[in-house]
Computed example of a mutant assay.
Amino acid sequence: MAARATIVLLHGFTQTGRSWDPVVAASAERYRALAPDLRGHGAASARRPVDFASIEADVLALAPPRFTLAGYSMGGRIALDLALRGDGTGAAQERIERLVLIGASPGLEDPTERAARRAADDALAHEIERDGVEPFARRWAAQPLFAGQPPVVAAAAHAERLRSTPDGLAASLRGVGTGAMEPLWDDLPALRVPVALIAGERDAKFRAIAERMAERIPHAELHVVSGAGHAVQLERPEVVAALL
Score class of each variant (00 low, 15 high):
residue 179 G to C: 05
residue 130 R to W: 04
residue 36 P to C: 08
residue 156 A to R: 11
residue 49 P to M: 09
residue 115 A to R: 13
residue 157 A to T: 08
residue 182 E to A: 15
residue 138 R to K: 06
residue 24 V to H: 01
residue 80 L to T: 06
residue 85 R to I: 06
residue 125 A to Q: 13
residue 199 A to P: 03
residue 135 P to Y: 07
residue 82 L to D: 07
residue 241 A to E: 00
residue 20 W to T: 15
residue 205 K to L: 14
residue 158 H to C: 06
residue 10 L to E: 08
residue 205 K to D: 09
residue 108 L to C: 13
residue 121 D to L: 07
residue 87 D to G: 12
residue 138 R to S: 01
residue 98 R to C: 10
residue 203 D to S: 05
residue 148 G to A: 05
residue 77 R to F: 08
residue 227 G to F: 10
residue 210 A to M: 13
residue 60 L to R: 10
residue 148 G to E: 01
residue 203 D to P: 03
residue 177 G to N: 12
residue 131 D to Q: 14
residue 71 G to W: 07
residue 1 M to F: 01
residue 111 P to R: 09
residue 15 Q to N: 12
residue 237 P to H: 00
residue 155 A to K: 11
residue 180 A to T: 09
residue 62 L to W: 12
residue 184 L to T: 01
residue 153 V to K: 00
residue 126 H to E: 15
residue 131 D to F: 09
residue 175 G to T: 14
residue 213 M to C: 14
residue 77 R to G: 09
residue 132 G to D: 14
residue 162 L to K: 03
residue 124 L to F: 11
residue 191 L to P: 04
residue 142 A to P: 00
residue 141 A to Y: 00
residue 203 D to M: 08
residue 89 T to F: 02
residue 14 T to C: 12
residue 69 L to F: 05
residue 226 S to W: 01
residue 177 G to F: 11
residue 151 P to M: 02
residue 108 L to A: 08
residue 106 P to N: 08
residue 121 D to R: 00
residue 197 L to N: 09
residue 190 A to H: 09
residue 58 D to W: 02
residue 7 I to R: 04
residue 55 I to H: 09
residue 241 A to Y: 00
residue 98 R to Q: 12
residue 171 A to N: 13
residue 78 I to Y: 14
residue 165 T to S: 14
residue 240 V to K: 02
residue 143 Q to N: 15
residue 146 F to S: 07
residue 73 S to Q: 11
residue 116 A to C: 07
residue 199 A to I: 02
residue 167 D to I: 00
residue 102 I to S: 08
residue 142 A to R: 08
residue 60 L to N: 05
residue 236 R to A: 15
residue 86 G to A: 05
residue 38 L to F: 12
residue 66 R to T: 12
residue 92 A to L: 12
residue 69 L to P: 07
residue 225 V to M: 13
residue 226 S to V: 11
residue 184 L to V: 02
residue 73 S to D: 12
residue 19 S to V: 06
residue 147 A to W: 00
residue 101 L to G: 03
residue 224 V to M: 13
residue 9 L to A: 04
residue 145 L to Q: 14
residue 235 E to L: 13
residue 114 R to G: 06
residue 155 A to S: 10
residue 13 F to G: 04
residue 163 R to G: 01
residue 103 G to L: 09
residue 138 R to E: 07
residue 71 G to K: 09
residue 52 F to C: 14
residue 118 R to V: 02
residue 92 A to Q: 03
residue 166 P to M: 10
residue 113 E to G: 15
residue 144 P to L: 09
residue 71 G to T: 05
residue 125 A to R: 10
residue 30 R to I: 03
residue 219 H to R: 14
residue 55 I to C: 08
residue 64 P to S: 12
residue 206 F to E: 03
residue 95 R to S: 10
residue 219 H to T: 03
residue 226 S to I: 00
residue 35 A to Q: 02
residue 67 F to C: 00
residue 48 R to A: 15
residue 239 V to C: 04
residue 172 S to Q: 09
residue 160 E to K: 05
residue 76 G to S: 14
residue 126 H to W: 11
residue 242 A to S: 13
residue 17 G to F: 07
residue 67 F to P: 00
residue 67 F to A: 01
residue 79 A to Q: 01
residue 115 A to D: 06
residue 227 G to N: 07
residue 136 F to K: 07
residue 103 G to N: 04
residue 84 L to I: 09
residue 229 G to P: 10
residue 123 A to T: 05
residue 139 R to I: 05
residue 152 V to W: 03
residue 62 L to V: 11
residue 45 S to I: 06
residue 44 A to Y: 04
residue 63 A to D: 02
residue 170 A to D: 06
residue 115 A to M: 03
residue 78 I to L: 15
residue 218 P to V: 12
residue 175 G to A: 11
